[in-house]
Structure formats: C-alpha cells, structure tokens
Computed example of a mutant assay.
Amino acid sequence: MKSQRLTPASFLLAGIIFLLLFGVIAWGVYFESNWIRSFDLSWIERIQGTISEGKTAFIMFMTELGSMKAVIAMTIIICIVLFFKHKFAEGLWFGGTILFCAAIGGKVLKKIVERDRPNFLQLIEKTNESFPSGHATATTIFYGFIGMVLILSVYQIWKKVIISFITLVWIGFILFTRIYLGVHFPTDVLAGFLYGLAAVFISIGVYLLIREPLRQLLQKLHLADQSQAFKRAR
C-alpha cells in the first residue's frame, strides 16, 4: 500500500480561486449588473426553447436527485456505512462537509443575497430565495466530493478521466434541469457550481491538514479509526 502525495496547499489554493470566481458572480447579482442580466437572458432563451412535455416529466423526476433533502438522506446513509466500517474520520469529514458547506453555507448565502426567482416560465413552483441554487450547491458538493475522492484514490489516468467525465456530466445535467424548469437563473446554478467546487477543494485541503490529529483524537476516545481515503494499492 502506498499513499499518494497530496499537498493541502494545492487544494486550498484551488478552492480559494473557485471561491473568488463565485464572489465575482455574487457581486454582479447583488448589484444587478448588466452583464449578469444579459448572460441570464441569453441562456434562459436557449434552454427553455427546448421544452417538451415528455422531456419535462423526466426532468422533474431526475432533478430531485440533486435536492438538498435527497443529498442529506444519502449523506446520512453513507455516514452510517462509514461508521459501521470504523471509518470515523472519513464519516465525520464527509458529513461535516455536507452539513456546513451545503446545508448551512448555502442557506446563509441565500439570505445574504435574497434574489427573487425568475419571473419567466416556471414549470414547477418555488418561492424561496434563488441565489445560489440549492440544487446546484448540494449536487456539486455531494457528487463532486465523491467524484474527487474516487479520482484521487486511483492511479490510472484513464480511470481518472472516466470518473471526471461522469461526475461533470451528471452535475451539469442537474444544473441544466434547474434552468429548464424555470426556477433558477443561469447565474444561480453557475454560482452554486463554483461555490460547491470551492467547498470540495477546501474540504479536501483541510482534511489533509487535520487527518492525523483527528485520528489521534479518535484513538483517545477509544475509537479504532480505519479510514484510508487516498490510499490504494498500485
């Protein structure tokens, strides 16, 4: 067994870059910049121009796989499995990331910006704040987190490429559904995506920094931690 040499600084730096990009969009939305309005109108016209009855029924079903409720439910199941396998550090890391970054962080950002929902064609009814998209945030953090852990846990380049492709396509599809259904502006989902990426990269960087101290703390609590994230046999 050999550990991949992962440096916390590189993940933290990437996370900060994504967070800054999120900040640029948030600034534009908060002050109702013209470029934000032009971008949103352009993509809403393109995406909602493809609406059909059959496609809508399918999208309404699939989009719920990216909802905060679904993500929280799946997170609880995964954490229970990790704890059952004595991977306490990984369970706390994963559960903490979803709780603080997706559930709490996303809600706080919504309250700060307080952007109204689009007043265009809405195929489902939503009344709470629009920015950033909760689905985009939850989807990117949950599926992006799992995708990144898998990518960093394998050595073959072709496996990394396949995992990256599947992860991005799935996240992109959920983001698309929110615009298609008329419940979010394109900048809502783009911001949720960027914030989600920032959360994933920063979370990995922080975990790499505190992994050993956390495991030592768990040992003091008489919990034999068997977490092995990022460790695979060649």
Rank of each mutant, 00 (worst) to 15 (best):
M1V: 10
M1W: 09
R5C: 08
L6V: 00
T7A: 11
L13A: 11
A14P: 05
L20Q: 02
L21C: 06
G23D: 02
F31Y: 15
F31Q: 14
S38E: 14
E45Y: 10
G49H: 10
G49F: 07
I51C: 01
K55F: 15
K55E: 11
T56K: 07
F58L: 14
I59W: 01
M60G: 15
T63L: 12
L65D: 02
V71D: 08
A73G: 13
M74C: 12
T75S: 02
T75G: 11
I76G: 11
L82Q: 11
K87V: 00
F88Q: 06
A89C: 04
E90Y: 09
W93R: 07
G95T: 03
C101A: 14
A103C: 13
K107F: 08
K107P: 00
V108P: 06
V113C: 03
E114R: 12
P118G: 01
N119M: 15
E125Y: 05
N128C: 00
E129A: 09
F131C: 12
H135N: 06
T140N: 05
I141C: 05
I141L: 01
F142V: 01
F142Q: 02
Y143W: 14
L150T: 03
S153F: 11
W158I: 04
T167K: 06
W170N: 15
W170P: 12
G172H: 10
F173K: 14
I174F: 04
R178S: 05
I179F: 07
I179N: 03
I179A: 06
L181D: 01
L181N: 01
L181K: 00
V183S: 07
H184Q: 14
T187A: 12
T187R: 10
D188I: 08
L194W: 01
Y195K: 04
S203V: 00
Y207H: 09
L209F: 14
E212C: 08
E212S: 14
R215V: 13
Q219D: 13
L221P: 07
L221Y: 13
Q226C: 09
Q226F: 08
Q226M: 12
S227A: 08
Q228L: 00
F230R: 14
R232Q: 01
R232P: 00
